[in-house]
């Protein structure tokens, strides 16, 4: 890591764009969501907030589906610091390098070991966290639609509302779902940037960081 190389092959332009879309939608969703939860200023914003919330959710859903499909077609770097590529989805799922490393990764982050751990394209914890955002997004979509009046009566949604004990509980789950995303984003942003900002440069600006001495 550290001053290691970050090549464009790790994040092809299409995924830089999907990442941007995710970020913008997430910010819009959290902001409008908090506003809908409790309107903290009065400026005729509720209609806008609701519109924003719905649009951002549709966009993020479409984006997610596109991202999943693209993972089966687009090739990305299969390891850190390499231009060697493989089908993207393979680099998401556990790779040989990830095997037996989950506990070691935890130990590393909890300062129980000094050396960094060998990983595939992403570390074990990282993969779990990233992959978890997929079902979490669908849960947010599901709980959101379940408390959205025009859809709430659909039997697929109504059954879930019954299961959790009514619309109020559904609302609370939706609310906590947002907190999970906030926590994810905090940890994600922190760990991505704790060593240096090279990861941000590549994912936001698509600017490569070359290995030392190779300018």
């Amino acid at each position: 890591m550290g001053s290691h190389a970050h090549y464009r092959e790790a994040h092809p332009l299409v995924f830089v764009i999907t990442h941007w879309i995710n970020l913008i939608c997430m910010v819009m969703l959290a902001f409008s969501g908090f506003y809908i939860h409790f309107p903290f200023f009065s400026a005729g914003f509720m209609g806008v907030a609701r519109g924003m919330h719905f649009v951002a959710m549709y966009v993020i859903l479409i984006n997610l589906v596109f991202r999943i499909v693209a993972a089966f077609f687009v090739k990305t770097a299969n390891q850190l610091e390499t231009r060697e590529v493989d089908t993207d989805i393979k680099n998401w799922l556990p790779q040989a390098e990830n095997k037996h490393q989950l506990v070691e990764t935890l130990k590393y982050y909890l300062f129980f070991r000094k050396e960094g751990v060998i990983s595939g394209k992403y570390g074990s914890l990282q993969k779990i966290a990233y992959l978890a955002t997929v079902p979490l997004t669908f849960i947010q979509a599901y709980t959101g639609f379940a408390i959205y009046a025009p859809f709430a009566d659909a039997s697929f949604l109504a059954a879930g509302t019954t299961l959790v004990g009514g619309p109020m509980n559904m609302r609370i789950i939706h609310y906590f779902g947002m907190w999970v995303f906030i926590l994810f984003t905090m940890v994600h942003a922190y760990l991505a940037n704790i060593y240096n900002f090279a990861p941000s440069k590549i994912i936001f600006l698509w600017k490569e960081t070359l290995p030392e001495g190779k300018h």
Partner: peptide
């Protein structure tokens, strides 16, 4: 900065 020294073997 540069990150930790990496392990040679798992």
């Amino acid at each position: 900065g540069d990150g930790p020294p990496m392990e040679e073997m798992k």
